[in-house]
């Protein structure tokens, strides 16, 4: 560290300093890698290696309880999955849940963020309570809502005006998916609203004031000033939540166990691998699930980038 500080006004000095600087940057490079290496190794150990293994296993017909029957089948597992209606139904469910929950969360979360942003009293209470759903175990949330919607032990049927008391929410696909979405939305809206709140607090009051002076209505201010300026926060929130929702598993496991066609892609993979011990076809599903997530991430990033660029041009 001291090398940079000692500089003498001699002709060769700049040369030496440059050499010292490269040496220093090399040292910094080395130190940097030393410091991040454990974390990187740890992250890759549990993801990259198993992923390669899944890739390898996916080329076999391999059932754990019948190891002698293991045989190389090439891409047949992928073919079987991709031509199977179950896979597409489950992917459809997953995308449905993702779109619905993220859309609803975005709206409710934004409303919550607006309230919290303007709030001048009881800030601590609100912040504390909004963190409770965030911190609660997803399984607990799933149980709470499962019981609430339950035919025998739930209050929902009694409270909802148009629903009969003996309506079985988990008896058919769409009501069951609805219940699953409710639990997911309840638990994760706070996260969304906090991210949006952070974005909201970055908008300068002056800009809003100026818009107000210019005679912009509340609605116009919302769409022309607030939302465009929150794009980054919204993008991050949506990206994270969308990918999180796409992995939905806990709620489905607890609430329906995938019955009535409410299975998600994650749950299907879990069932093949863990319940049926079909490591071959299960690994193919794992790989496909991974690719789906990458695809969605790619699409979302692309979509937002285009939007962001467009916004910049407009501004």
């Amino acid at each position: 560290m001291a090398t940079g500080a000692v500089t003498a006004p001699r002709p060769q000095a700049s040369d030496r300093a440059r050499r010292a600087a490269t040496e220093r940057s090399r040292g910094e490079n080395r130190l940097g890698w030393k410091l991040v290496a454990p974390a990187v190794v740890m992250m890759l150990l549990v993801t990259a290696y198993p992923m390669f293994r899944a890739l390898y296993l996916s080329l076999y017909k391999y059932r754990l309880t019948a190891p002698e029957d293991r045989e190389f089948v090439g891409l047949n597992n992928y073919l079987a999955v991709l031509t199977d209606s179950l896979w597409w139904i489950d992917v459809g469910n997953t995308v449905f849940i993702m779109v619905v929950t993220v859309a609803v969360e975005l709206v409710i979360g934004f409303a919550f963020a607006m309230v919290m942003h303007r709030l001048i009293f009881a800030r601590g209470i609100v912040r504390t309570s909004i963190l409770i759903p965030y911190g609660i175990i997803t399984v607990v949330s799933a149980f709470a809502w499962q019981f609430a919607f339950s035919l025998n032990n739930g209050f929902v049927n009694g409270w909802l005006p148009l629903v009969g008391d003996d309506f079985n929410w988990f008896g058919s696909k769409w009501p069951a998916l609805f219940a699953i979405c409710v639990s997911e939305i309840w638990k994760t809206t706070p996260f969304m609203s906090l991210l949006l709140l952070a974005g909201l607090s970055q908008i300068s009051e002056d800009m809003l004031e100026a818009a107000k002076v210019d005679g912009a209505t509340w609605w116009q201010r919302l769409w022309k000033v607030i939302i465009p300026n929150m794009r980054a926060a919204i993008m991050v929130a949506v990206l994270f939540r969308a990918l999180d929702a796409f992995r939905i598993f806990d709620n489905i496991y607890v609430m329906t166990r995938g019955a009535q066609g409410t299975e998600s892609a994650s749950f299907l993979t879990y069932r093949q691998v863990i319940e049926q011990f079909e490591l071959g076809i299960g690994s193919a599903l794992s790989v496909l699930l991974f690719l789906s997530v990458m695809l969605i991430a790619f699409l979302l990033v692309k979509l937002f980038k285009v939007d962001l660029a467009a916004a910049r041009q407009e501004g």
């Binding site: 025998n152 003996d166 079985n168």
Partner: peptide, 11 residues
């Protein structure tokens, strides 16, 4: 029974 599709030995 109303909960036929989720019925088990207990329900």
């Amino acid at each position: 029974q109303a909960d036929l599709s989720v019925s088990n030995e207990g329900t």
